[in-house]
């Protein structure tokens, strides 16, 4: 469809609109993945501290 990279970036004069929309989508996707990752980290931290507590209370 596009002859070269420049034409691809320019999007026939609509480059600003197209890239803004895709940029927003990408940003949202990345944010989403980062939050998922942070979520798992938090869960693991929580569970680990809980386990350490249990072990500590079992030991005399």
């Amino acid at each position: 469809m596009f002859d070269d990279w420049q034409a691809f970036i320019a999007m026939g004069g609509h480059g600003l609109y197209v890239w803004l929309a895709y940029g927003a989508a990408l940003a949202l996707l990345i944010l989403h993945l980062v939050r998922l990752r942070a979520d798992w980290r938090k869960t693991l931290r929580l569970l680990r501290s809980k386990r350490d507590q249990d072990h500590a209370s079992q030991a005399p």
Binding site: M1, F8, G13, H14, Y17, V18, A21, Y22, A25
Partner: peptide
């Protein structure tokens, strides 16, 4: 996304701005 951005034909009225559809409609 790559398909829609690079390989789909432009719309005969809206030109390339129609490619936003590949973000807009799924959302």
């Amino acid at each position: 996304t790559v398909w829609g951005l690079a390989f789909a034909p432009p719309d005969y009225q809206q030109g390339n701005s129609f490619r936003i559809i590949y973000v807009h409609v799924p959302a």
